[in-house]
């Protein structure tokens, strides 16, 4: 049985069939540098929470969404930011989240 646990930075794509996934990934930056401590939350089109990952030491995160519109919420100590993103099947959507 595989766990539901979120891997720091997101699950590796090494053994994932990208053609069957709608991947959203990126890096959280704070004050111009990758944020080593933080969390990214994925909200659906109704702004309902869907998933969350802790960022890697390089600020990285990754989700395996369904095709459609999503909102990302980045939480770092003392600050948050939000960004809209659209995911497509078979595509990797990359974006940077900038937190002041």
């Amino acid at each position: 049985m595989s766990s539901c646990g979120a891997v720091v930075g997101g699950v590796s794509l090494d053994r994932v069939d990208i053609a069957k996934e709608a991947v959203i990934q990126g890096v959280v930056h704070k004050d111009g540098k990758p944020a080593p401590i933080g969390y990214v939350r994925l909200h659906d089109a109704n702004d309902e929470f869907t998933a969350e990952v802790p960022v890697s030491s390089l600020g990285e995160f990754r989700f395996f969404a369904a095709p459609g519109n999503w909102t990302l919420v980045a939480l770092v100590p003392g600050a948050t930011t939000r960004a809209e993103v659209s995911a497509e099947l078979g595509q990797i959507t990359d974006l940077d989240l900038l937190v002041a």
Binding site: D17, L42, D44, E48, F49, T50, A51, V53, F64, A66
Partner: peptide, 19 residues
Amino acid sequence: RSPDEYAGRLLAPAHLPQE
């Protein structure tokens, strides 16, 4: 679970591969 998992649009939490 999340609304998308409940409805059947996702098979797992979205931080995991969906297959």
